[in-house]
Design a protein around this nucleic acid. Structure first.
Lengths: 142, 142
DNA sequence: TATTGTTATACTCTATAACTATA
DNA sequence: TATAGTTATAGAGTATAACAATA
């Protein structure tokens, strides 16, 4: 069935959009499982254990205004997941460190995030390989 | 050591997640182009012209509480995109109708949404078809 | 009594602008 | 003066509970 290429493109993109929603729902359920809002989970994900990060740098990673990070970190800190520590050298800078509890929650969140929903795992191996190969071409590097 | 990353389920899923982000960014830029919040755009998308919908039904489609819809529709109505009309038969029900302006904005939004970002269009037709086929299997019907 | 939509309330995320304490 | 982080403020989305009008 030689469809017009433009129609094929639109159809493929519509399917991609639906996959996007699937991904979004999956993410939200991963957030809910660890009782974090999407923004909080996103922040915790960026804070790799053993790699302290300044508030401002986190704002950049989250692509939001620095003032938002204050509140997001307030809530993470209230739950005992991260700590604000003074940076050596520049006393204006506060550095974020993930606590032991934070590391556990972070691991739990990431592991849930990486558990693919059923349909993908049911796909034949060869098709999954093809999918991965195509995705690698169209999706920007992380 | 990853000898065969392509047959790794987790790797494929990670790529799918990135596609999800790509889709999300695309959607947000489509929303921004018509000056609608994601929730407002989502609502307007559900309101097919010529198919009036009750507030409660819209809440179900948006999968949110009915009380939220009041505010979302307030803003759409303030912009002249939809109208609340009394339903015949049951005077408790208010029915939503898209205005002429609303139809134009809706068309503009949907057309931007369906414009695939560059990378997908650069994919060879054959691969795009393969991608569509795989997506059709793993993605739930709309 | 039950249902539809609204209001009241509360919390989070978002941004801008003003403020503080450093540098 | 400039920068890092905070606070103040405002708008939007989310949910729950209470409410009015109607069924």
């Amino acid at each position: 069935m030689r469809e017009r290429p433009s129609d094929d493109l639109a159809e493929t993109w519509r399917l991609a959009i639906r996959l996007g929603w699937l991904v979004r729902e999956h993410m939200e359920s991963a957030c809910a499982a660890v009782a974090l809002s999407p923004a909080q989970a996103h922040a915790l994900r960026e804070l790799e254990p053993g790699r302290p990060m300044a508030m401002g740098d986190l704002a950049q990673r989250l692509r939001c205004d620095a003032s938002n990070v204050t509140g997001i970190v307030d809530r993470l800190e209230a739950r005992g997941l991260v700590e604000r520590r003074p940076a050596r050298g520049d006393r204006r800078i506060k550095v974020l460190v993930v606590t032991a509890t934070g590391r556990a929650v972070r691991r739990e969140f990431l592991s849930r995030l990486e558990m693919a929903p059923v349909p993908l795992s049911l796909l034949p191996l060869r098709q999954r390989q093809a999918l991965a190969e195509v995705l690698r071409r169209i999706v920007p590097a992380d």
